[in-house]
């Protein structure tokens, strides 16, 4: 199960882009705490504390807001355009016995024999949505790929679900497979045309002259 981290927050009176920008310069991240039909509270937390928790895959936190401790789920994180800093966070109140829907990362274990024999490991799905109790959120879903040959596929229905976890993704969706390596071709991308030629220009069809009928 994913570890729970304590995050200290304080209610935030600052509103508006300029005040929030000044707040961010002091190393704080604006956020909001909502859920359980209680009044949403605007809060601010330490950037470093939150960044550490998010990058380590923490989902459930013990959020201390102005001395009041409650369990909260990191529901959404907004990043800056370079993906370096967290600029906003959404916390959702949860109780220990509440069933929630979360997205957890998929983790590959082992080396696929298909890769060793010249195949390419393709992973179209990097995370999967699950339903579980708030306290039972796994850090990741581990997938054993030690028996994956060229052409073999692991679907969502093949994933080993831990106790109390239900996968919400389409059961036939491909999680990981080993595909035959394609020979390098001259035109790798669809939409490419031969060099030197120009693309076709889309023209409107001319309306048929009605005068001919008269």
């Amino acid at each position: 199960m994913a570890q729970t981290v304590k995050i200290t927050a304080k209610s935030r009176p600052e509103k508006g882009a300029n005040r929030i920008a000044r707040l961010r310069k002091t190393g704080q991240v604006p956020g909001i705490l909502y859920g359980h039909k209680e009044t949403p509270i605007s809060i601010s937390t330490s950037h470093d504390e939150l960044f550490k928790a998010v990058t380590h895959g923490t989902r459930l936190v013990d959020l201390e807001t102005d001395g009041k401790l409650e369990k909260a789920l990191i529901r959404e994180v907004q990043w800056d355009f370079l993906g370096k800093d967290v600029i906003h966070v959404d916390f959702s109140r949860v109780s220990a016995d509440e069933k929630i829907q979360v997205t957890v990362p998929l983790e590959l274990k082992g080396v696929a024999p298909g890769v060793l024999s010249g195949g390419v490991l393709d992973m179209p799905m990097h995370s999967v949505q699950i339903e579980c109790l708030a306290l039972d959120i796994p850090e990741s879903i581990k997938i054993n790929i030690t028996e994956l040959q060229i052409g073999s596929v692991i679907h969502v229905k093949d994933l080993v679900a831990l106790a109390g976890i239900r996968f919400l993704a389409d059961a036939d969706a491909i999680v990981v497979h080993v595909i035959q390596q394609k020979a390098e071709v001259a035109a790798p991308v669809e939409g490419a045309v031969t060099e030197g030629t120009e693309p076709e220009v889309i023209k409107k069809a001319k309306p048929v002259a009605e005068e001919d009928e008269e």
Partner: peptide
Amino acid sequence: MAMMPKRVKFRKSQRGKIRGN
């Protein structure tokens, strides 16, 4: 081989400005 679109509405485009991130 360099990529280019298959079909376009106009052959030439204005330069434009690259604003923002």
